[in-house]
Write a protein that binds this DNA or RNA. Structure first.
Lengths: 242, 242
DNA sequence: CGGCGCGTTGATTACTGTCAAACGGTGTGG
DNA sequence: CCACACCGTTTGACAGTAATCAACGCGCCG
């Protein structure tokens, strides 16, 4: 089995150099691993975590509910994402984190994280960075929700997932696994299930994607990006000193 | 004139104790101050800031544009908000920051910030906290955009601004100044100007608010919160060790 | 006084939601 | 091994929220 922190280090390496020393610090972090079935809660709303959770494989999402029971996902997390690093300073969860179609996660005590941040301010900045990139993604979602029509929004989401999954080696050929229901997608892009279904079919009919069962194939990434008005700058996939 | 960092310290104090020592560190930070007219750009998209900007008075917003020219504001910042702290680790701005109806801002060199973070890890966490609270607000906006109808969304925005402005002493009685156009509001809640106007009138007609010129009066905050399904938890207005 | 930006209103269009039902794959129990 | 139930996907008809288009009012400034 590959190291627990492999995907995380891969994601960090994509944004800055990670020294041997820093790698060692990460790999010595204490943790416990848990498996979650689809729909299971990794972190509960209202709780006060003493550990932060790192997705090792599969998908997880942040979810919030509004008064009439409608659900909205505010982030989708993939392998290598340190999902609730921010609970270290936020203390109380204002939303929950759930597994989408099952996932594996490592839970790392805040104390351990504090220790490595003190030991390596640079590593601290890299962890800070990952919460800040989450923010950049959220801002982009805001823009998609507010100002893009349904078909473009959906295409944009696929482009984003494609780019992020590619970073951690989860795109094989032109395809990636996406073990979520159309209902999950609907709660991601703020549309009804029925309309999401129509939009997926539109993308299929345009020859942009194949979406069969739980695997998405991007037939022409350039055309899809063009259609989605997708600019990956916000993902900060540039390796530079931070 | 009151200290440059007064509003910031007020905002931090609302979330955790700030020691005399930490206060001194903040107040010794080098900075330069600039005034901005409404619509002027504080930080440009694509730029690589070497300073982070702190709003001293007035309003600023993050804005992004989509292909067809539509605009979306992804955050509204008020006095005491350290708007682009995250540029310290993000390096390249993926959006611009503009003044809404004029503002005053202090620009603090990243080097100075790095120094105080090294000097006081706790202060570092508080600065990290402020970027993370920004993230919490953004997540909430995502939920509002995705799953709330226009009238509720608008009411929610007013509740949020009310709560945040109250924190830094900018609510007098039941009113606060909001020197923005309905067009700005439209780009905030992802609606058309016309529809925003109708929703404002609906809130007025319901006796929830008065919105005259540039001042908003909340007639009954409890009813407004009820109507907006507003839960201030996400603003982290709780003073506790972080 | 005229131009201009912003707010307001009305009429019409259209995107997306809701309701309802059918279809298809998968797993379970008889 | 097949029938059935269940979950998720798909389709169609219709409803409703919000966008668009157009015009007008109003205060402010040159």
């Amino acid at each position: 089995m590959t190291g627990t922190f492999t995907a995380l280090i891969l994601a960090l390496e994509r944004r800055d150099r990670v020294s041997e020393e820093e790698r060692r610090l990460l790999e010595q972090l204490p943790f416990r691993i848990r498996t979650f079935a689809g729909g299971e809660e990794l972190v509960a709303e209202g709780s006060r975590p003493t550990e932060s959770c790192l997705v090792l494989s599969g998908f997880a999402a942040r979810q919030q509910f509004v008064a009439d029971g409608k659900r909205q996902l505010t982030a989708i997390h993939i392998a290598g994402d340190f999902v609730d690093l921010h609970s270290m300073v936020l203390k109380v969860m204002d939303h929950s984190i759930v597994s989408l179609g099952g996932c594996l996660a490592a839970f790392v005590p805040h104390t351990g994280l504090q220790a490595i941040i003190t030991a390596s301010p640079h590593l601290g900045r890299l962890l800070w960075l990952s919460t800040v990139i989450d923010g950049a993604i959220e801002r982009n979602w805001v823009t998609c929700l507010g100002r893009r029509p349904a078909n473009t929004h959906l295409a944009h989401l696929i482009c984003e997932l494609y780019a992020r999954l590619e970073t951690v080696g989860l795109v094989r050929g032109k395809s990636f696994e996406l073990p979520v229901t159309q209902s999950d997608i609907a709660d991601t892009v703020g549309l009804s299930i029925v309309h999401v279904n129509r939009m997926i079919q539109e993308l299929r009919a345009s020859g942009l994607i194949i979406w069969d069962r739980k695997t998405v194939t991007v037939l022409d990434i350039d055309r899809l990006r063009e259609f989605a008005d997708f600019d990956p700058t916000y993902l900060n996939l540039v390796r530079e000193p931070r």
